[in-house]
C-alpha cells in the first residue's frame, strides 16, 4: 500500500530539510506510485526508464514543492509532464504489448488519484487524436498500420498525433 498524502507530505518536508532516511522512504513510495500510475499508458519495456527519469526530476526539482500545498498533485504534474515528453520522443517496438494491469487500487485516496490520472488527460482529446496516439505512441504501430486500423489517411494520423500531443501538454495541470 502506498503512503497517503499526509505521510508523503511529511516525508517530503523532512527530505527538503536534508533527512536522507526519510528521503529514501519517500523515493521508494514514489517509485511504487509511478509504476502504478504509468502502467496502463506506458509500454512495459519503457516503464523503468520513465520511472527513473521522473525520480531524477523529483530529486532535482524537490525545492519546487511548496510544503503548504499537497504532495501528490505536485508529483502527478511532474509525472504527466515527463509522460507527454516521453510520448513525443519514444516509439515502442511492436513486440512489447501492454499487459493487463488492472489490479484494484488499494489506496484510500483512490478518488483523488483518479482525478490526477493519465486517463483524465485523454478524455479531453477528440477520439481521433487519442486513438492514434494510443496506437502509434503507446502500442508502437507504424503510421501506416495505424492508418489502416483507424481508416484515417497517413497524413491525418500524423496531424492528429501532433495536435493531440500539443493539447496534452497544455492539459498537464488543468485536466482533473
Amino acid at each position: 500500500m502506498i503512503a497517503d498524502e499526509q505521510e508523503m507530505a511529511a516525508m517530503m518536508a523532512a527530505a527538503q530539510k536534508g533527512d536522507a532516511g526519510m528521503y529514501r522512504a519517500l523515493l521508494a513510495e514514489v517509485q511504487l506510485w509511478l509504476e502504478r500510475y504509468y502502467r496502463k499508458r506506458v509500454a512495459p519495456a519503457q516503464l523503468d526508464d520513465l520511472v527513473q527519469e521522473v525520480m531524477m526530476a523529483v530529486h532535482h526539482k524537490r525545492a519546487t514543492w511548496d510544503p503548504t500545498r499537497a504532495f501528490y498533485p505536485w508529483l502527478a504534474a511532474i509525472a504527466r509532464y515527463r509522460w507527454v515528453d516521453h510520448l513525443r520522443k519514444v516509439y515502442r517496438s511492436a513486440e512489447d504489448e501492454l499487459g493487463d494491469h488492472d489490479a484494484p487500487e488499494d489506496s484510500k485516496e483512490e478518488a483523488v488519484m483518479a482525478r490526477m490520472s493519465l486517463e483524465r488527460l485523454f478524455v479531453h482529446l477528440p477520439e481521433k487524436q487519442s486513438e492514434v496516439i494510443e496506437l502509434v505512441k503507446i502500442e508502437g504501430l507504424s503510421i501506416a498500420e495505424a492508418s489502416e486500423k483507424t481508416g484515417q489517411s497517413e497524413s491525418l494520423v500524423k496531424v492528429n498525433i501532433h495536435r493531440g500531443l500539443k493539447k496534452l501538454s497544455a492539459l498537464v495541470e488543468k485536466a482533473e
Binding site: 514543492w65 505536485w74 504534474a77 511532474i78 504527466r80 509532464y81 482525478r115 498537464v172 495541470e173 488543468k174
Partner: peptide
C-alpha cells in the same frame, strides 16, 4: 507555475 500541481489554473 514554477511550483507545478494538477489543478493549477
Amino acid at each position: 507555475m514554477a511550483s507545478p500541481s494538477v489543478g493549477n489554473r
